[in-house]
């Protein structure tokens, strides 16, 4: 089937090399993500009974490649047990308080982040804006894609081509005019300013139309003869058939909206209205050198997306390959 599977002798020699190469590159490419988590959970400014001054494992040379709090916590716990066995309760108390300190300092950046910033609010904003926009885009684009694929009416081709021709136009071209429109609609610093422009994107119409072209006309005709209304046909025949493409479009749009950055930093001004990427920018602007705090914010922002990817992988991959591969 493939170009190497054929030569079994060759592949026996080459397979371990290929695996090693691929694995090492995979590790290198996952390293930054790993480093986000390590820094977020790293132990800052800590002094145990053996040190003469406090050290920060976040800012250390050589860097500590794992959260130092874990072995430190375990070792203090062991020392505490040891002291208790020896009957030295004073010493056990020292280790117990060090254990508390390790725990508090490790998670300290999370507490600080929750106290000082609106990060949970940003998370919520990102989530509901992305979900709402996605739902509306999928609905509107399926409706539009359906009639553009299956109906014949004056103006159809003009509408189709005008929409499609905007697909390749970079977002930046529309930035200034859209900003002026948003201002005139009095939507500056309003979540609608994030939702509305998303609903104008052409990609979904194109995707849904291409997909719905394959629905057999007889099916729609039969329903019409049975006296079903257009909306009923759409709901009970088109929507179920379109579901796979809607899933791909939905998941793709969700990721796009969730990660959107340039537009939100332009139209949203109040911190409590921000979405996660924009919020992270203000976090960084205010704490340029506090890398533990920054990586904590990055962790909170990255985890939902990673979970989302692991759940919806199949659709994401499908969506990616739609444009590039000719069947």
């Amino acid at each position: 089937m493939s170009f190497m599977k054929q030569n079994s002798v060759l592949s026996k020699v080459k397979k371990p090399i290929i695996y090693t190469l691929l694995l090492s590159f995979a590790i290198v490419s996952l390293l930054p993500l790993y480093w986000v988590f390590v820094t977020a959970f790293q132990l800052p400014s800590y002094q145990n009974e053996e040190m003469d001054r406090p050290v920060s494992y976040v800012e250390s040379n050589p860097p500590v490649l794992y959260p130092k709090g874990i072995p430190e916590y375990i070792s203090q716990w062991q020392k505490k047990r040891e002291a208790e066995r020896m009957g030295d309760y004073e010493q056990a108390e020292v280790h117990a308080s060090l254990m508390t300190e390790v725990r508090q300092k490790t998670f300290g950046s999370f507490t600080r982040l929750f106290e000082r910033t609106d990060i949970m609010r940003w998370l919520f904003n990102s989530l509901y804006i992305a979900l709402l926009t996605t739902a509306l885009i999928v609905l509107f684009d399926t409706m539009a894609g359906y009639v553009l694929a299956k109906k014949d009416f004056p103006g159809k081709w003009i509408i189709f081509w005008v929409i499609i021709s905007t697909m390749m136009i970079p977002e930046q071209v529309t930035l200034v005019p859209t900003f002026i429109i948003i201002q005139n609609l009095n939507l500056f610093d309003n979540h609608l300013a994030l939702i509305f422009p998303g609903l104008a994107l052409a990609f979904g119409v194109f995707l849904m139309r291409q997909f719905l072209l394959s629905i057999p006309d007889e099916l729609l005709e039969a329903a019409k003869i049975d006296g079903a209304s257009e909306w009923k046909i759409f709901r009970s025949i088109v929507l179920p058939l379109a579901a796979p493409a809607m899933a791909v479009l939905g998941i793709f749009t969700f990721v796009q909206m969730w990660n959107s950055f340039l537009w939100p930093i332009i139209v949203i001004n109040s911190t409590e209205l921000m979405t996660l990427p924009a919020g992270l920018k203000t976090l960084q602007d205010a704490n340029l050198a506090d890398f533990k705090l920054l990586m904590t914010g990055a962790t909170i922002a990255a985890v939902p997306m990673i979970i989302f990817f692991l759940i919806f992988q199949r659709y994401i991959i499908k969506g990616l390959t739609l444009g590039g591969v000719k069947e």
Binding site: F140, A144, V147, D152, F153, V173, F196, L199, A200
Partner: peptide, 23 residues
């Protein structure tokens, strides 16, 4: 084909205001 235009309407409104006019 009134219904077809109705189906297109929501997309066309947003497309016109936030894509076509801005471009």
């Amino acid at each position: 084909n009134k219904v077809a235009y109705l189906f297109l309407l929501p997309k066309l409104i947003f497309f016109t205001v936030f894509m076509l006019i801005p471009i």
